[in-house]
């Protein structure tokens, strides 16, 4: 039995598939691909599949990671080809290899965010204000959280979770490249960041596209 890490992308129509459903889909995909999966033992045997970091519904990604356990000696390339032959539109295996990092060590994610506004003026206003707000010391947002077992709304300072940012504007389109906190403990969704800024400025986008480009570990290495 050996562990194999698969890097896959999620684009197009597949971005509307939730994390839980991606999990179920992959369970079926490995069966269709007839990979020599290692099965858990017990009353309900199932193949071992684990994901590095869930992706929000509606976002694209080039850096999705899934670990599986296989028995026998199928090559990484064959695993890639077999799976790609049987995946639905928008899901594609980019590379296969032995896991290097531990998913627990993920601390940030890099995003490309494209925000389209109704008018050029709105876009440049957003761009200017966003730059200002992200340079500041405080950008407060409400996030659902828990106090014991109770669900409450928590106030959080988003500035603590923004590590890198670059914002540009052309016409009615704003491009935001950023590195935000990601992982088990702290996590900032770029959609929340954009909407918090919009609430401060008092405007709202027409379309929003988010692509997750890379996962970064606490030692500042690219997760793989």
């Amino acid at each position: 039995m050996r562990s194999v890490r698969l890097n896959f992308s999620k684009t197009g129509r597949a971005i509307y598939i939730s994390h839980l459903d991606v999990n179920r889909m992959m369970t079926r995909a490995v069966r269709r691909a007839q990979l020599p999966m290692w099965y858990t033992e017990g009353f309900n045997p199932h193949p071992y599949i684990a994901f590095a970091l869930p992706l929000s519904l509606g976002q694209s990604s080039d850096c999705e990671y899934m670990d599986i356990r296989i028995e026998g000696d199928m090559t990484d390339e064959e695993i890639r080809q077999r799976l790609n032959a049987t995946l639905p539109e928008g899901i594609s295996i980019l590379s296969v290899g032995a896991p290097v990092h531990d998913a627990k060590d993920i601390s940030a994610a890099q995003y490309f965010v494209k925000i389209i506004f109704e008018t050029d003026a709105e876009a440049s206003l957003f761009c200017e204000k966003a730059d200002e707000l992200m340079k500041g010391a405080e950008l407060i947002a409400e996030k659902p959280g828990k106090k014991g077992h109770r669900k409450i709304m928590k106030q959080v300072n988003l500035i603590d979770f923004i590590f890198e940012r670059k914002i540009t504007c052309t016409g009615n389109v704003v491009n935001l490249q950023c590195s935000l906190a990601a992982g088990n403990t702290n996590n900032l969704n770029p959609t929340l960041l954009v909407e918090t800024i919009e609430n401060c400025v008092g405007i709202h986008h027409k379309q929003l596209y988010v692509v997750r480009k890379k996962l970064i570990t606490k030692n500042n290495e690219i997760f793989r």
Binding site: G12, R13, Y16, I17, L87, P88, G90
Partner: peptide, 11 residues
């Protein structure tokens, strides 16, 4: 809710 119902593209 559940936008996956409206997009097609299934295997």
């Amino acid at each position: 809710q559940k936008p996956g119902r409206y997009v097609g593209g299934e295997l």
